[in-house]
Amino acid sequence: MATKAVCVLKGDGPVQGIINFEQKESNGPVKVWGSIKGLTEGLHGFHVHEFGDNTAGCTSAGPHFNPLSRKHGGPKDEERHVGDLGNVTADKDGVADVSIEDSVISLSGDHCIIGRTLVVHEKADDLGKGGNEESTKTGNAGSRLACGVIGIAQ
């Protein structure tokens, strides 16, 4: 089992970053940390998408990683996509320092995120509470600013 993974985020604009993942036990939580720069100040949706395909930019990554066919939600919700990591918060300089621990994603097994795409979005994720159909699919997080395929790390 891989215990570490990394993702280099890039987009068409100024947004870029490096996100690290570490899972010490196969059924334990995954620590997610790193930094994203070039964002507007505020909240930005942060999700693992189904495919590791960036051939047409971030759009070819498909929908959120959702092997259990659930509705979109927040990272602490029972009803959520596996890939729903909530929001990252950018400061006035456009930098989001990421520090998350998640017990639904994994670096092995059915919820493995390796080979899938991590995406940072234009807007805040409403965590499935926006009151419309799009909220239950995407959290109304808007366009995909930057993305990268999650790969095994040393």
Rank of each mutant, 00 (worst) to 15 (best):
D126R: 01
V48F: 14
L107V: 13
T138Y: 05
Q23M: 05
D97Q: 15
Q16V: 10
K37F: 06
G42Q: 05
I113L: 10
I114E: 04
G109W: 08
G17L: 02
K123H: 10
V15W: 10
V15H: 08
G73N: 07
G62P: 00
H47Q: 03
G38C: 12
K92C: 12
V119K: 01
H111Q: 13
P75G: 11
G38Y: 10
R80P: 00
S143D: 05
G34M: 05
P29Y: 06
A5F: 11
S69G: 14
G73W: 02
E133I: 10
L145E: 12
D84R: 02
G11M: 08
V119P: 00
S60Q: 04
G42K: 08
I152T: 15
S143R: 06
R80W: 01
A90S: 13
E133F: 12
K137C: 08
V149Q: 05
L9M: 14
T117W: 01
T3C: 09
S143W: 07
G148E: 03
V95Q: 08
G139T: 01
N66M: 13
L118G: 06
D126V: 01
S99H: 08
K129E: 13
D91C: 06
K10W: 14
Q16N: 07
K31M: 13
S69P: 13
S108F: 15
P67G: 05
E122T: 07
A141W: 00
F65Q: 06
T136F: 09
V15S: 11
A141T: 04
L127M: 15
I18S: 13
C7M: 05
G17K: 00
P67H: 03
N140H: 07
K123G: 10
K76G: 13
G109H: 14
G13H: 14
L127E: 14
D84A: 01
H111C: 10
N132Q: 10
V119S: 00
G94R: 09
V120C: 13
N27H: 15
P14A: 05
I36F: 14
G142E: 04
K92I: 09
S35G: 11
P63K: 04
P63F: 05
S103C: 09
E101A: 07
A96Q: 14
D77Y: 08
I19S: 02
V119I: 08
R144D: 02
V104F: 05
G62Y: 01
K71H: 06
S108V: 10
G109V: 09
I152V: 05
C147Y: 04
P63Y: 15
T40C: 14
R144F: 02
S106R: 13
V6W: 00
N140I: 05
E25W: 04
H111E: 15
G109I: 10
H81K: 01
I19T: 05
H44D: 03
G45F: 03
L85P: 00
E79M: 11
W33Q: 09
R144P: 02
W33S: 11
L9T: 15
G38S: 11
V88D: 00
K92Q: 11
V82Q: 13
H121M: 02
Q23H: 04
V104N: 05
V30G: 05
D77I: 06
Q16A: 14
L85R: 01
V104T: 11
N132I: 15
D102L: 07
S135W: 02
N140F: 13
K76W: 13
L107M: 14
Q23N: 15
G148A: 12
A141M: 03
E22H: 09
R80V: 00
G13N: 15
G83W: 01
D84P: 00
G45K: 03
Q16T: 09
L118M: 15
S26T: 14
G57S: 15
E133S: 07
L127T: 10
C7L: 10
V119R: 00
G17Y: 14
I150H: 00
K129M: 07
K71N: 14
G131A: 09
H81C: 01
F21S: 02
G38F: 06
L68E: 13
T138L: 02
T138D: 01
E41Q: 09
A90Y: 04
E50M: 11
E122Y: 07
D12S: 13
E122S: 10
D53G: 00
G45V: 01
T117N: 05
C7W: 00
V95S: 12
H49S: 01
T40Q: 11
V8L: 05
